[in-house]
Amino acid sequence: MIQLHDLQFEPFISEAEIEEAIAKVAISLNEEYKGQNPVFVGVLNGAFMFASDVIKRFEGDCEVSFVKLGSYEGTSTTGTVKTLVGLNQKLKGRKVIILEDIVDTGNTLEEINRILEIEEVADYQVATLFFKPEAYKKDFEIKFKGLEIPNKFIVGYGLDYDGLGRNLTQVYKRKE
């Protein structure tokens, strides 16, 4: 059990399970993008660990960029996604892989889709470490999924609760 701010969290997903999920995503990406030069776009802050681990396992040429979007306050989504830091490179005509820590409602993906349409990318796919099918409300395809999980609030491995918990090597769920 751990305490972050005013909430308690209990162990949920082990470091070994996370490593296995990342390896699965990386194998699929290597097969899909063999011989190509995709641009990985990590969604900050949460995806920094996942992005690093996936990109290290990518066997071909690639480029890396980041965007910073925000939609959470405390343990719940505000329903509004704000672009806090935009893209720093042009993506017109490029193949892009979005690296997300977690996909729940899909609101962040909607904003990313808007950004990528403006950028006129050739194609993009989404790779996420965690996917919450119960919470997902959009129609964007999530092609590469590490783990499908229930709709619980989690922290660790890049995910936080009001700034704390990102550095944890395993994932914890809110104690009910």
Rank of each mutant, 00 (worst) to 15 (best):
E59Q: 13
R94N: 05
K152H: 14
G35A: 02
G93E: 11
N45H: 00
P11F: 14
T108M: 06
I13N: 05
I149W: 07
K175L: 14
E10L: 08
T80F: 08
S76V: 15
S14N: 05
G106N: 09
P150C: 06
D6K: 13
T78N: 02
G46E: 04
F48I: 05
L129G: 07
Q170C: 07
E117W: 00
I13H: 05
Q89H: 00
G146T: 11
P38R: 06
V96M: 14
L116M: 11
V126L: 04
K90Y: 13
V121Q: 13
V81G: 09
T108S: 09
A127Y: 15
K56V: 02
V39N: 07
Y172I: 02
L109N: 02
K90P: 12
I97Y: 08
L129Q: 01
S76Q: 15
N107E: 13
E73W: 07
R57M: 06
G79Q: 01
F50L: 08
A23G: 05
F66I: 02
A21L: 01
I18K: 06
S52H: 12
G146Y: 12
G42C: 01
S52N: 13
E17Q: 14
K145S: 04
K145C: 03
E176R: 05
G79M: 02
A26T: 04
G86S: 13
E117A: 00
Y136W: 04
C62D: 01
K92W: 08
F50R: 13
T83L: 06
L164A: 03
K92T: 13
I149L: 09
A16I: 08
V67D: 03
Q3L: 05
E119T: 03
I142L: 05
F131H: 03
V155D: 06
T80K: 15
S14Y: 05
K95R: 14
Y33D: 08
D139V: 04
N151E: 03
G46I: 06
E141W: 06
E15F: 00
L29N: 08
K24Q: 12
D162L: 03
V121F: 09
K132W: 08
E73V: 14
F66N: 01
L91F: 09
E111D: 13
R94A: 10
Q170R: 11
L29M: 07
Y161Q: 09
G165Q: 15
I2Q: 03
Y124I: 07
V103R: 02
I142P: 00
G106L: 08
A51M: 02
Q125E: 09
L7F: 12
Q3S: 09
Q3V: 10
E141L: 15
G70W: 07
L164K: 02
N37M: 05
I27A: 09
V121I: 06
A47L: 00
I18M: 09
F58T: 04
R174G: 01
G86L: 12
Y161S: 10
R57P: 03
D160P: 02
E110Y: 06
K143F: 10
R166V: 11
I22W: 00
F58Q: 07
K95A: 09
N37D: 15
E100H: 11
